[in-house]
Design a binder for these strands. Structure first.
Lengths: 120, 120
DNA sequence: CTGCATCCCCCTTGATACTG
DNA sequence: CAGTATCAAGGGGGATGCAG
């Protein structure tokens, strides 16, 4: 049957909160989606792919994603530095969950208005 | 098969980011889990169930969840105020997605260390 | 090219006290 | 009991400059 049978509210929340934290923030998901499908992208390619993000944020998020084992870094020992990023196996396995979440989001009945003031 | 075939990175991210935003924060998920299963809880019951949260945060998160259509409020016109919270249909339908996410989280290979507090 | 450091803003969260 | 007001603190995120 299930690999995890039953959780108390607190227990289940802990596990998921951890997961959500890894995806939290304004950029994680964007980065991840650009990497889905096993794509291998350079730092500069990601920068170009996500113009709105600052270098600082890109690196910061990349680092966290890497530390969380979701993405991996390939450093080429070259004169002009070349670093490539790609999803780990585990990172790729995030896709179904995200897809479920997207499906859920699309089921939303009546989105009155966004209420996160920060998005302005 | 899929109800939504393909998304560009940016497109898919937009949809999911919206979803994630609704669940973001330290308390949303905790609250939600306490409500899963169609439970009907009073404000004070939630307070007791989540001792670590402040009234302000509890109400704030509750309001956002309500505004996002994930939970609903029942106000009883009584002398000692009585307000109950419960998940909406849509809110309940979040469960599978969260479960997927939890499953993913549990597949994590080697959780070296938490990296949030920049304690490293 | 890739990555880090610093300064700065302000949103989020939190503690406490007050009100209907 | 349910909800609000206020003030303070922490940290995420942006801009810019510097370094390997």
């Amino acid at each position: 049957m299930g690999k995890h049978e039953h959780h108390t509210p607190a227990t289940a929340a802990s596990g998921i909160e951890e997961a959500i934290q890894m995806l939290e923030g304004r950029w994680k998901l964007v980065i991840l989606f650009h990497l889905f499908g096993g794509k291998l992208l350079r730092f500069s390619e990601l920068e170009r792919a996500i113009p709105a993000i600052s270098q600082k944020m890109l690196i910061q998020q990349l680092r966290q994603l890497e530390q969380d084992g979701i993405i991996a870094r390939i450093v080429h020992a070259q004169v002009p530095p070349k670093v490539e990023y790609h999803l780990t196996e585990w990172g790729q396995s995030l896709c179904p969950a995200l897809d479920e979440l997207l499906t859920w989001a699309e089921k939303r009945p009546a989105p009155k208005r966004a209420r996160r003031p920060s998005s302005a």
